[in-house]
């Protein structure tokens, strides 16, 4: 058996330490070791975006990052987006626009949208669609998701 490695990282602003096997992805570590199950596995090969998280300020698919790679880095997940008493404007916009049906892709879309709006607070519809193209949704046809992100942009 390959020995587990010690990793120290910051997740949603909190210092976190864990042991993991090199073969465990960041997604597996978040879900199975840290019980942060907001990031979802839809494809496990970077083609659906359901596992999107922000790593050192950059949007990534957590299924394509090894858990050991986040040593010394910072990770933002869906669990860290809302404040205790208040949702993030993107979350509010998703609810007000009915931008989710089954909801399985929603955490990934919100992380992706957050990464976009953090960088470009005033995107066009095309920029939103281009940025979110790595996130698959099978329920909504994307119409209300795109509207929610545009609404969130104008609200902030």
């Amino acid at each position: 058996m390959v020995r587990k490695l010690h990793v120290q990282t910051a997740i949603n602003g909190e210092t976190v330490e864990f042991l993991c096997e090199p073969r465990q992805s960041l997604l597996e570590v978040l879900r199975d070791e840290l019980h942060l199950t907001g990031a979802k596995e839809g494809c496990n090969n970077g083609n659906c975006g359901a596992c999107s998280v922000i790593l050192d300020g950059r949007l990534v698919n957590s299924c394509l990052v090894l858990g050991v790679e986040i040593d010394g880095k910072s990770v933002e997940t869906i669990e860290g987006v809302a404040e205790p008493e208040k949702l993030h404007p993107i979350q509010d916009a998703f609810l007000e626009n009915a931008a989710l049906q089954c909801g399985i892709c929603t955490p990934g879309f919100i992380m992706s949208a957050k990464a976009l709006l953090d960088k470009n607070p005033n995107p066009t519809e095309h920029e939103v669609r281009y940025w979110l193209a790595g996130n698959l949704c099978r329920c909504t046809g994307y119409d209300k998701i795109v509207r929610a992100v545009l609404d969130a942009a104008s609200a902030t």
């Binding site: 970077g46 975006g49 999107s52 790593l55 950059r58 949007l59 990534v60 698919n61 394509l64 990052v65 992706s112 990464a115 976009l116 940025w131 979110l132 193209a133 790595g134 996130n135």
Partner: peptide
């Protein structure tokens, strides 16, 4: 190449 998240890596 890929989507935005892929381009992050």
């Amino acid at each position: 190449i890929g989507g935005t998240a892929i381009q992050g890596r």
